[in-house]
């Protein structure tokens, strides 16, 4: 007979690397998944994560689908706080413009410039 196994708990180790959806008829992910992630991981802290995940995949036994597909980390699989410091390695430099648009410097508007230059007086004019 069925016996109570205890309170349901989340597995301690979860592999968040992209794998084919269980209801997918092809049972594999298209190449675009890998290429998007590779492109996204070229810059920024996720690049470090990619290297990390690649080295960890080498030591771990690959799963069936991971064996067929290239290893490309797990963007979105870990929270930002777990990704470590956002600093380039020694001798490595980033250009801000290579990052997604939201990290680019925002331009000052005329109104802001005017407010600064006039000490705010122009805003009440």
């Amino acid at each position: 007979m069925i016996r109570f196994l205890g309170k349901r708990s989340t597995p301690k180790k979860i592999d968040h690397s992209p794998q084919a959806h269980p209801a997918s008829p092809s049972d594999e992910l298209p190449e675009s998944f890998a290429s998007y992630r590779n492109r996204a991981q070229q810059h920024g802290p996720l690049g470090g994560q990619q290297q990390q995940s690649q080295s960890s995949t080498k030591s771990a036994a690959p799963s069936s689908s991971a064996g067929a597909a290239p290893t490309y980390g797990n963007i979105g699989g870990r929270s930002a706080s777990q990704l470590g410091p956002v600093e380039p390695a020694k001798g490595q430099y980033w250009d801000r413009n290579e990052l997604p648009k939201r990290f680019h410097r925002a331009r000052w508007t005329e109104a802001e410039m005017e407010a600064l230059e006039s000490g705010g007086a122009s805003m009440s004019a």
Binding site: H16, P18, Q19, A20, H21, P22, S24, L29, P30, S32, F33, Y36, R37, I75, G76, G77
Partner: peptide, 13 residues
């Protein structure tokens, strides 16, 4: 729409 086992598209968010 093509997704992985965690409902992510190729754009993970």
């Amino acid at each position: 729409l093509v997704i992985d086992s965690e409902y992510r598209t190729k754009i993970p968010h």
